[in-house]
Simulated scan of single mutants.
Amino acid sequence: MLSDNRIYYDILETACNSLGLELDEKKYNQFIQYKNLLKEWNEKVNLTAIKEDEEIIKKHFIDSMKIFQFHPLKNSKKIIDIGTGGGFPGIPMKIIRPDIDIVLLDSLRKRINVLDDILYKIGIDDVITMHGRAEEYGVREEHREQYDAVVSRAVANLAVLSEFCIPYVKVGGYFVAMKGPSVDEEIENAKKAVSILGGKIEGIIEVDIEGSDLNHNLVIVKKVKNTPRKYPRKAGMITKNPLG
């Protein structure tokens, strides 16, 4: 049965339609459950500073779904979300495209425990959650260059984020970084790092959120060659001395 809280159905459906994606009752109920569980858990574990229902729908769920404006992601089978936090963008991606294999990675065990609870309660049992640091998993053979795409909404400059993320991407795959409205200088400063790591910046996709004045960018990086074995470095070196 569809949730009584239908006020957000049209907002979500409009966003899905703009992306060529389908919203049904099951998916809608999962989003509403997800929202409620986020608010409940957020009182115990810091997951988001956004607490109003409509803001969660727009700034987290729709913003996450908008990553599918980059159409090759619709054909990616295996995706990892680095620094997933409250599950963004990975869980909304999985709700709206349940056929995609999603891995969620976060460095805080408490957040991973929360995400496990949320996924169980909204009825998703085929998402892999991992606790650990990106630079540690990125050197392991079972994860290094094993993913069709890496997505991240983590707060870090692009040069730093690239070293955390690009090692996971298969040659021919993509790293998609979700960024704010002003990214030109950040991209320019990250070009050398991206190249060293085996990537090439293909472009920027502007994202608008329906019913709001929010606008973000997707920075698209294609993996064109293997990442040299010495990367990623240890976290302290990555953040203190970004490549480039």
Rank of each mutant, 00 (worst) to 15 (best):
A190W: 03
D148F: 07
I205W: 01
Y28H: 08
S64Q: 10
I166G: 01
Y8R: 08
R6T: 14
I102Y: 00
I118R: 06
K170M: 06
E186Q: 11
E54R: 14
L37G: 14
K94P: 01
N157G: 04
D116R: 15
E185C: 06
G20N: 08
R6S: 11
Q146S: 07
S162P: 04
L12A: 09
S212W: 12
L19N: 07
K74C: 07
N226F: 01
K121N: 11
G198Q: 05
E163K: 08
A49N: 11
N5R: 14
G244P: 12
E145K: 05
I82K: 09
V151T: 13
R97E: 09
G132P: 08
A190C: 10
E13C: 10
A154E: 03
R109Q: 06
Y137I: 12
V207C: 02
L38C: 13
N241S: 13
Q69C: 09
A177C: 09
I201C: 07
I79A: 05
G244R: 06
A15E: 10
K230L: 10
E188Q: 11
I91V: 15
Q146I: 14
E186M: 07
R97P: 02
Y147H: 04
D148Y: 04
G86H: 03
V169C: 06
V150N: 01
G211Q: 10
R6L: 13
V139C: 01
G236C: 06
E206N: 11
K58M: 08
Y28P: 13
Q33G: 10
Y120K: 15
I220K: 10
I128C: 02
R153M: 04
N46P: 14
E55S: 15
V103E: 00
Y120W: 02
S195N: 08
P89T: 15
I96R: 06
L218Y: 03
K223R: 07
A154F: 09
F164G: 01
D184I: 11
I100F: 02
P242N: 12
I220P: 11
L21K: 09
E135R: 11
E40R: 14
E206D: 10
I238L: 06
P72A: 09
I57N: 03
I112R: 00
H131W: 09
G20D: 05
K94H: 07
K192Q: 08
E188Y: 07
D116N: 15
K27W: 03
Q69A: 08
K94D: 03
F31G: 11
A177G: 09
K179C: 09
E186G: 09
L37R: 13
S182G: 02
A134M: 04
S64Y: 08
R6F: 05
K26Q: 08
R97W: 00
L108G: 02
P98E: 01
F70M: 07
G244F: 07
A177N: 04
I11K: 13
I95Y: 04
T84L: 12
H131N: 11
V127W: 00
N29M: 11
F164E: 00
S195T: 14
V103L: 08
R111K: 15
F68H: 05
V127S: 00
L197E: 02
A193D: 07
N226E: 12
I128N: 00
G199V: 12
K192C: 04
I187H: 00
K74N: 09
K200D: 05
E43P: 05
A49S: 15
I118Q: 02
G211P: 08
Y168P: 03
A177M: 05
I122Y: 00
T84C: 10
E186H: 06
L108V: 15
I187C: 03
A134N: 00
K77V: 13
H60N: 09
L161W: 00
V151W: 02
